[in-house]
């Protein structure tokens, strides 16, 4: 074992000893290392003092009402998310139907000049292409992105 990997092994054993996570064999190995190296023993004592205090550190508890309302808040957020989804689907259906009716009316209107008809149809067609393109991009990015939970 090289001195660097030996050192790393010792550091891991030291952490395990501090946290009571060593097996009997590992503990014996660590004790032997300590008995051979006074500087390591001194370092270990410093870590022991440090960990004795860090294990007593506590984070402030929130007000009890926070716990009482916690699930209700989560529930409301879930429900609102579903609400938005249903609303969006409904809106897409209405917009699609409305666009179809507008296109139908424009085509059948004898009073409109051809150039106006073409302009309106191109505008609606362009919007539809843009919408589908953005929706498809979002869908495929989400589906294939392993970090989709990360907000960029």
């Amino acid at each position: 074992m090289s001195s660097a990997s030996n050192r790393e092994h010792m550091e891991k054993l030291m952490m395990g000893a501090l946290d009571g996570e060593l097996t009997g064999k590992e503990q014996a190995e660590f004790n032997q290392m300590l008995s051979k190296d006074p500087s390591m023993k001194e370092e270990f004592e410093k870590y022991k003092k440090l960990v004795k205090v860090t294990k007593t550190m506590k984070l402030k508890a929130p007000a009890p009402e926070v716990w009482e309302n916690y699930w209700l808040d989560v529930y409301n957020r879930i429900e609102r998310g579903i609400g938005w989804l249903v609303f969006s689907v409904g809106l897409v259906i209405l917009l699609t139907y409305g666009s179809f009716k507008v296109v139908e009316a424009v085509i059948n209107d004898p009073g409109l000049a051809i150039i106006i008809k073409v302009g309106i149809l191109l505008t609606i067609g362009g919007l539809a292409i843009l919408f589908v393109s953005v929706a498809r991009e979002k869908y495929f990015t989400r589906k294939h992105d392993p970090y989709k939970e990360i907000i960029r």
């Binding site: 030291m14 870590y47 440090l50």
Partner: peptide, 12 residues
């Protein structure tokens, strides 16, 4: 274990 060692070392 090694991440914990590095964190405690930095703290120390």
């Amino acid at each position: 274990m090694s991440r914990l060692f590095n964190a405690r070392k930095a703290l120390k």
